[in-house]
Lab assay of single mutants.
Amino acid sequence: KNAAKIVNEALNQGITLFVSDNKLKYKTNRDSIPSELLEEWKQHKQELIDFLTQLES
Rank of each mutant, 00 (worst) to 15 (best):
K42Y: 14
T53N: 11
L38M: 12
F51G: 00
T53M: 14
E47Q: 09
Y26T: 03
A3C: 11
V19S: 03
P34A: 05
A3K: 01
K5E: 14
L17Q: 01
L55N: 13
Q46M: 07
T16G: 04
K45M: 15
S57G: 13
K5N: 09
K42C: 15
D31V: 11
A3Y: 04
D31T: 12
S32K: 10
D21P: 00
W41C: 04
W41I: 11
T16V: 15
K23P: 00
K25N: 09
I15P: 00
N2R: 11
S57C: 11
E9V: 05
Y26Q: 02
I6S: 01
F18W: 07
E47S: 09
P34I: 03
Q46I: 07
W41Q: 00
L37F: 08
N29V: 08
E39I: 08
N12T: 12
E56D: 12
D21S: 05
K45Q: 15
S32R: 09
I15L: 03
Q43L: 13
D31G: 11
Q54D: 09
D21R: 05
L38G: 02
E56M: 13
S32M: 09
S32F: 11
A3S: 05
F51R: 01
F51N: 01
S57K: 14
D50G: 06
A10K: 01
K42P: 01
N2A: 09
A4R: 09
K25I: 08
E47V: 07
A10I: 01
I33S: 02
L37H: 03
E47H: 05
A3G: 04
D21Y: 05
L55R: 13
D21T: 03
I33H: 02
V19L: 07
V7Q: 02
Y26K: 01
N8W: 14
E56I: 12
Y26H: 05
N22I: 02
F18P: 01
D21V: 04
K42V: 13
S32D: 10
A10E: 00
A4K: 10
K25E: 11
Y26V: 05
E56K: 13
K1L: 12
K27Q: 08
L17I: 06
T28A: 06
K25P: 00
I49W: 04
L48V: 05
I33E: 02
A4H: 07
N29P: 05
T28I: 03
L11T: 06
D21L: 04
A4T: 05
E40F: 08
I6R: 03
E39Y: 07
L11Y: 10
D50E: 14
F18L: 07
K23S: 10
Q43V: 12
E39C: 07
E39T: 07
L37P: 01
G14Q: 04
Q46N: 07
